[in-house]
Design a protein around this nucleic acid. Structure first.
Lengths: 365, 365
DNA sequence: CCATTTGTGTAGAACGTTCTCCGTATAACG
DNA sequence: CGTTATACGGAGAACGTTCTACACAAATGG
């Protein structure tokens, strides 16, 4: 492989090929470094660095002079170089998948907290593949980012713990209250599911089922499992036995549609369903509409996440709100506190709430 | 501000406080560096570096020994350090906003191309604020990322050009075929709008209007403007004059809903509308449903982006598909070619297509 | 057999920060 | 006035790579 470094064009364009400036083609404009600033302000490099980090031992006059030069020259410290020694003031955010409308909320929360600070967020998308997820985490560590927020990671707890030895980590949407290497921030998914079921019961429905997703590795830590647990507990408490039925629907088309169609066509189809996620609920509702199954007259539906789509008039899906925004904010604050030195793990549970909409209530009756 | 570096707990936990290992608390496990590898393999640092970059001048035996050691030690080069000298093998992706369901497609395209390579994508979210957008770009430059993909940037062309002097840039969803500092990849938004209008005309609709968005700075380069141009041209060609009506709806609630309501209540409400984006189209459809305006019987709707929501049975919105995935792929390939040395700007236009759905066609008539 | 080329490997200077020591000058104290 | 703090500023060693320049050996050519 030839490294084709020389740009023919630049040769041609430079017209006079005997030009004087033929020291070396710098191509990119020379960077303003901390040294440039130091020279301009007539102080040492160390002094500038101190001002930047507002460290102890700078007089007002020196600070003024240096900040003046920084301003004037438009100096920005190199994050790469910073990473080699100290902090980068960057936190990495790892998303499983960017399609889920719940995630933007979390990001918004992260940015809201980070905004006023001098930290910035960089996002990686794992696409639910453990391999990619792992390599993204490693990259973020290799960039010397200051901390990591992992949203609904696929990785098992031990591996996350191992990474957490190298970089502060807080996981969102990952239930492991026993983890002591990293923090977790969650909505109480068990309780959320209970609320969903309780509200269905209150509306008078008795014949209730849950639509879930077959988790690949059957993580107990996964939010999916947690919601199943809550569902079963609420059903049991209402006197329906300890193993209320759950229908798993696959992630991929066309099996997905096939399974839903079969479910909706069942002669013993339940009167109400609780879906582990809005995206599933909406697909079910869409197919119900196609098949002439009326919502909520024939089938009541409660979803999860209260995503923006659920709120649309066309959809009008009752859903459990877990406030992704708030999760993002809390996660960020927790991470910052860990970056600042906390070492005991913290596990926070937020309380979700029901947003009632038409899919739940048969109105005017 | 005290820098609270010392961890009390580690002291307490280490039991015997006179322990021998009291050189310095390293806390984080010592990193495997290129030097570790060199020592382990019994070669020079330079040799290892050469192997890593598969540069010229390494014998098979040396390469084997080094790769062996790398494997054994689990060595990963520090991206931070790399950034200080050479490439980081990271490309930055800048999104205006993460809520728009069109963007995940683009990301998926980017990742698809990057997957097999040793490059990785890091995403920043600008939230449509120029300030944040600018600072994210600067961060990415300061990280010495190898290139930038900007999706629907807000920044004016001159500023992007200035950034492009420091880092290879390709812009997606940004029409400026005259830019010579950076590349642009677009779906042909003018043509897309024309296709939408033509299909409405073919269905027999004559009374057509466009629902658009008041662009802040009225960029000619913005996709919104481009679609307006296409709309007007198609209308003119059909004999409706050169300034077919456009209704602008605001971005923020509650003015947004207010404006739409007013539009739908108009006595001279058009028979068909073309929305510059699915997200707007869907809100209009939702409010139409609430107000008893039937789609498509009373109002035909064509959207733009063919986002996943449009395809839902409940929504069934006809839309112009600009294949975000393909845009992402093309953008990535274009960027890589620029990183590899190309210096002439390239401007690519992809052809969009209509996906017909129920919102367009009054069926069985 | 000497001069040149080619192949293989190493030394060591960057890259742009941070941060630990150290000097100094001035202030405070007895 | 001598001693000790205290405040301020600078020198210079890291940090982990890349990459140029060079050394050395073996091969090639005349």
């Amino acid at each position: 492989m030839v490294s084709g470094r020389v740009s023919h064009d630049s040769r041609i364009r430079s017209g006079n090929f005997m030009s004087v400036d033929s020291k070396k083609p710098p191509e990119r404009a020379d960077r303003v470094t901390i040294r440039t600033v130091a020279a301009h302000a007539g102080v040492s490099v160390a002094a500038v660095s101190k001002v930047m980090r507002n460290a102890y031992g700078v007089s007002d006059s020196l600070r003024a002079r240096v900040t003046g030069s920084i301003e004037e020259l438009g100096y920005r410290p190199s994050r790469a170089a910073r990473g080699l020694r100290g902090q980068t003031f960057t936190i990495g955010v790892l998303l499983i998948d960017i399609r889920n409308p719940f995630l933007p909320e979390v990001i918004a929360g992260v940015n809201a907290v980070l905004g006023p600070s001098h930290y910035q967020a960089m996002i990686g998308v794992g696409e639910a593949r453990m391999q990619l997820e792992t390599s993204l985490i490693e990259s973020m560590i290799d960039y010397k980012m200051d901390g990591l927020i992992m949203v609904a990671p696929r990785l098992p707890s031990e591996i996350i713990t191992r990474f957490a030895a190298q970089i502060p980590i807080v996981a969102v949407g990952y239930h492991d209250p026993t983890a002591d290497g990293f923090d977790t921030i969650n909505a109480d998914d068990q309780r959320g599911a209970e609320i969903a079921i309780e509200s269905l019961l209150e509306c008078g429905y008795r014949d209730i089922e849950m639509i879930s997703q077959r988790a690949r590795e059957g993580h107990k830590v996964s939010v999916v499992r947690q919601r199943e647990i809550g569902y079963r507990r609420a059903m049991q408490r209402a006197g329906f036995g300890s193993s209320a039925p759950i229908t798993n629907i696959p992630l991929e088309s066309p099996m997905r549609e096939e399974t839903i169609r079969k479910f909706l066509a069942r002669s013993d189809r339940p009167r109400a369903i609780f879906c582990w996620s809005d995206i599933d609920a909406i697909v079910v509702m869409s197919m119900a509409a196609e098949m002439g199954v009326r919502v909520p007259e024939d089938l009541a539906v409660v979803g999860y996440d209260n995503s923006s789509i659920a709120a649309l008039g066309l959809v009008n899906l009752a859903s459990i709100d877990q406030s992704g925004r708030e999760l993002g904010q809390t996660a960020t604050r927790t991470l910052l506190s860990r970056i600042e030195g906390r070492s005991e793990a913290v596990h926070i549970l937020q309380m979700p709430s029901l947003v009632a909409r038409r899919s739940l209530i048969v109105n005017r009756l």
